[in-house]
């Protein structure tokens, strides 16, 4: 069904593509961009699932679009510009839209993700990942008629936790415990303050905080480099602004 929608009446194709070309190249020939060739219609995966799926492209919209393009071309022709040859028009160009049977009306249809009476959030995340990946490679036109309503915040926090944090949590907890124990031992051996007394001490509380923050922020060796770069980046703009004041001090010292 969706395939039928995609292959809109062939009549419109020449006009559609020619009007596109008109938009890009007419007034400023030197600026004409090469359109990347758009031969794919839908992702192969979507075709597989396409039969009997819910409609994502409203047929009327496509019709309307084609009709409007028609009109635009006619206006152009009446202005006296040479009519665009339609016989040798390139492969039909179709509005590229993400297709998936579970993607209905701009959001994931959660009914499709039911498993044993409950929503399987993991597969919602999987589906969204795949959609974003697809969009990255094929940026989609935004449209007001078919808005995207899906919001990642509808996936409950524990689903994210379970998937992204738990595999790492064991490691982090273990690391924090080891670092904490060693630091407590270290402080004890240096100052003679016992573990229980350390809890009441401000300095030791700060150390505890540093240890936890450190374990959270530095998970891999590369993280140190990344953090350093972040600090540099965040002060770079300040330096750019300070330049004119620094300049004054140097010229002043020369003057005086």
């Amino acid at each position: 069904m969706s395939m039928a929608l995609f292959s809109a009446p062939p009549l419109h194709f020449p006009t559609l593509s020619s009007s596109k070309r008109h938009l890009t190249s007419k007034p400023y020939p030197s600026l004409s961009f090469k359109k990347p060739h758009l031969t794919f219609l839908v992702s192969p995966r979507a075709i597989d699932n396409g039969s009997g799926s819910a409609v994502t492209v409203d047929p009327e919209i496509l019709e309307e679009k084609a009709a409007q393009d028609d009109g635009a071309v006619k206006v152009e022709e009446s202005n006296g510009s040479p009519p665009v040859a339609s016989a040798g028009a390139p492969a039909p160009e179709v509005v590229r839209m993400f297709k998936d049977p579970r993607w209905v009306g701009g959001t994931w249809d959660l009914k499709e993700f039911q498993k044993g009476g409950e929503t399987n959030w993991d597969s919602v995340i999987d589906a969204e990942v795949r959609r974003r990946k697809w969009l990255e490679d094929n940026p989609e036109s935004s449209s007001n008629e078919a808005p995207v309503l899906f919001d990642t915040s509808i996936i409950p926090w524990w689903a994210w936790m379970k998937r992204f944090h738990l595999p790492e949590a064991e490691l982090l907890n273990g690391r924090a415990a080891m670092v904490g124990f060693f630091m407590a031992y270290f402080v004890d051996s240096l100052t003679g303050v016992g573990l229980v007394d350390q809890m009441g001490n401000f300095f030791c509380k700060t150390l505890l905080f540093v240890a936890v923050a450190g374990v959270l922020l530095i998970r891999k060796n590369e993280d140190i480099g990344t953090l350093k770069k972040l600090v540099e980046e965040s002060t770079f703009y300040d330096k750019q602004w300070q330049a004119s004041w620094k300049d004054e001090s140097s010229s002043n010292s020369k003057d005086s």
Binding site: L23, T24, L31, K65, V95, P139, E140, S142
Partner: peptide, 22 residues
């Protein structure tokens, strides 16, 4: 390339338009 992408994203809202100045 970015300009082309911007136009593509706005697609149906500006199709049929005529560029009067770049």
């Amino acid at each position: 390339k970015f300009q082309l992408a911007t136009r593509l994203r706005a697609d149906s809202k500006i199709t049929g338009g005529k560029i009067i100045r770049v």
